[in-house]
Write a protein that binds this DNA or RNA. Structure first.
Lengths: 244, 244
DNA sequence: CAGTGGTCTAGACCACTTT
DNA sequence: AAGTGGTCTAGACCACTGA
């Protein structure tokens, strides 16, 4: 293992241990003690503990006080943890797909009252509306609609801009950094137009994210609605007793 | 603030800061520096940082390097974070309800092939099946079905046992500690029987958890399926760029 | 009782923001 | 330049497990 510059020590140790776990380098699923790892890797025990805490939170390992640290076989099967979804292209790649993006629509609309409230702008404010479809090998998988206040994205955008991931689009076109989404999980029966676009029958049950994206200072940047093909993309979550 | 025994220092500091944030004790949303908090509370800066990291992860605050730590007004509105749902009664209480539990069924069935695989038992193994309904003021809100291998819950249980939260039931009746669930989020159109129980029309879209509960050593203890009234219970999630 | 993970400390240095 | 959060260290003590 090489200790270099750039990513933090903790990140390097995390990645290193994750790789060893995935490779099955630890016999019988037992991971060496924190003290041993620290001296092996030439870092402090604190750094090792931070790395292990991340892996525990991801579900890759579990720890038993007084006993040891162990690989969690089930945890390795999780391909995408719901809280860590960032871009849909990356999400699809994590599922082993090689996604394509199609920009369906790029237009301006007036903000409805609820939209305006969520985006903290006045009702009627012009919004840039961007509809996109993510496909795997001609199979549509995700349909998204994004709404940006013109105060955030002032000028027009072309299809090439719109095809980029939202966070990249916002950073390049508006100089704003997307930090997190607050997402409502809503079960829907797909309307005919959306069902058509996703290539399923009208009325098919689907999961939907209805969400607002914020920057690091908790200012709303974008309002989004996304619809997923449940048969092609299944979300998995780890629920815990104590938040770790 | 009193520093006592029992909950860890970090937990005490977390609770204390959370209370002050909720009370609006910090002017203009600015939280004192880590150094200042540490000396005020008589703990190390590390402890303060651990507490602030938890609050940041919960969405209650955000931090800007070089600038400071601030209250996140949106974060305070989140009543239940998906990853932290543990018992449904507690979930409903968090939503301001005063829930009632009705045990619908308590029976033994043979494990189907997929059930057996998820529970890591042989197909045909007898399972204790427990169906429950959670209500708020006569309105059904959550319908759950739990399946326990007889190897976990060997003896019979009565309705009073079954009415308890699952983790409590397992601890008391089987001496096993539930540590986490791996949950699939599945959108469904409610079948007639389940729709009836939930008091909605057949075919109503609903969110479903299909999940396996494990102990700390990643051994499966229970297989569960839950259905929610979307109009009464909405799940909210915080999605982040970097897992914190 | 030796070894493990869990908690906490005091202090160093860095990167970044603000004045 | 001063102040803030971000990273990392070395070491102490505790709680728990298992031989």
């Amino acid at each position: 293992m090489v200790i270099g510059r750039g990513p933090s020590l903790t990140e390097q140790v995390t990645a290193h241990l994750k790789a060893r776990i995935t490779d099955g380098a630890f016999e019988e699923g037992r991971i060496p003690s924190e003290t041993e790892l620290a001296s092996d890797l030439g870092v402090s025990r604190t750094t090792v503990r931070d790395a292990l805490s991340r892996l525990e939170h991801e579900g890759a390992i579990y720890r038993r006080q007084g006993s040891g640290t162990f690989v969690n076989p089930q945890g390795l099967q999780i391909r995408s943890r719901l809280e860590e979804i960032w871009g849909y292209e990356q999400l699809l790649r994590d599922h082993g797909y090689t996604p394509a993006v199609r920009v369906l629509s790029l237009r301006t609309e007036s903000a409805s009252a609820p939209d305006a409230e969520a985006l903290e702008v006045a009702a009627g404010t012009p919004l840039l509306v961007m509809d996109k479809l993510f496909l795997e090998d001609d199979d549509p998988v995700v349909l998204t609609s994004n709404r940006f206040p013109r105060a955030v994205v002032g000028h027009d955008a072309d299809e090439a801009d719109a095809a980029r991931p939202i966070y990249e689009f916002l950073e390049r076109q508006a100089g704003r950094k997307l930090a997190y989404y607050l997402s409502d999980l809503v079960p829907v029966a797909l309307q005919a137009d959306r069902a058509d676009l996703l290539g399923v029958a009208a009325g098919t049950p689907a999961l939907s994210f209805e969400e607002v994206g914020y920057d690091a200072e908790a200012r709303p940047l974008v309002l989004a609605a996304s619809y997923f093909r449940d048969d092609l993309l299944r979300f998995r979550l780890m629920r815990r007793r104590t938040p770790a």
